[in-house]
Amino acid sequence: MKFLTGYSFAFLALATLACGCSNEPGTLEVKGKVTLDSQAIPEGRIRFSPTDGGKAPAEGLINYGSYSFRVLPGKYKVEITSPKPKIDPKVKKVGPGNDEVVETIPTKYNYNTELAVEIGSGKLEHNFDLKSK
């Protein structure tokens, strides 16, 4: 569990850098829930990458299925990741030298994302109910 906590800290640092100043003029707070097969994602990262150019991507942490961060209005593709440590089947636990991770979210929601949102002054809550198959 220490690995996941450390991983969350890394996500937080990346989110802070990617989002820049969270109080940037014109940003809006977007929030929502993320589930996989109707189960809340324990922890992960959600990234909004602009499709209309000119803006930096924005991202935030997923914690117990919830996320919230600030983003400029516009159209975005959405990437969701939730890596976890790969367990060595011989020892059945994470151990020294076994720091590999596996992605628990299907690639159609991250590297080959099919998800998109439009952020405006209207709907600022976007929920994502992902399916493993």
Rank of each mutant, 00 (worst) to 15 (best):
M1C: 13
K2S: 11
T5I: 10
Y7C: 06
F9W: 08
A10H: 15
A10P: 14
F11I: 14
L14F: 08
L14N: 01
L14I: 15
A15P: 08
T16Y: 11
T16Q: 05
T27E: 00
T27L: 00
G32N: 01
K33M: 06
L36W: 00
L36A: 00
S38A: 03
A40E: 03
I41A: 06
I41K: 01
G44P: 11
I46T: 07
F48S: 04
G53R: 06
G54W: 12
A56K: 08
A58F: 13
E59I: 12
L61A: 03
N63P: 14
Y64S: 12
Y64G: 07
G65V: 10
S66M: 10
Y67I: 07
R70L: 15
V71T: 09
P73C: 01
K75W: 07
I80Y: 04
P85N: 09
P85E: 04
K86H: 01
K86N: 01
P89H: 00
V91Y: 11
K92N: 01
K93R: 12
E100P: 15
E100M: 02
E100H: 07
V101I: 11
T104P: 06
P106C: 06
P106D: 00
T107C: 12
T107F: 10
K108D: 07
K108Y: 07
Y109C: 03
Y109I: 04
N110P: 12
T113I: 01
T113E: 08
E114M: 06
V117Q: 08
E118L: 13
L124D: 09
H126C: 03
H126T: 00
N127H: 01
L130I: 06
S132F: 12
